[in-house]
């Protein structure tokens, strides 16, 4: 026969929330290379991409994007 169940005190849960406030600093200003890159034709083209009309290639890309996400 198991003994009758009775309530026992338990240690309450306590979360460490202060750790969430410890993060890495932004390093963007330490990387001036990135600014130069943004001015280069390659990344400028990339930045313009979303504004270009979709067309067939856009549709295909969309399908690929859709396919890869699933």
């Amino acid at each position: 026969m198991p003994p009758a169940a009775s309530p026992v005190p338990c240690k309450p849960l306590f979360f460490d929330l202060a750790l969430n406030h410890i993060g890495f600093p932004s390093l963007d200003h330490k990387l001036p290379v990135k600014g130069a890159e943004a001015a280069s034709p390659a990344s400028a083209g990339e930045a313009n991409k979303p504004d270009q009309p979709g067309g067939l290639s856009g549709l295909v890309k969309g399908l690929w994007g859709w396919g890869s996400k699933k």
């Binding site: 309450p12 849960l13 306590f14 979360f15 929330l17 969430n20």
Partner: peptide, 14 residues
């Protein structure tokens, strides 16, 4: 994080 904070507060109350 308010849920966790409330949980901590409950622990203090205990």
């Amino acid at each position: 994080m308010d849920m966790e904070r409330t949980t901590n507060m409950a622990a203090v109350q205990v």
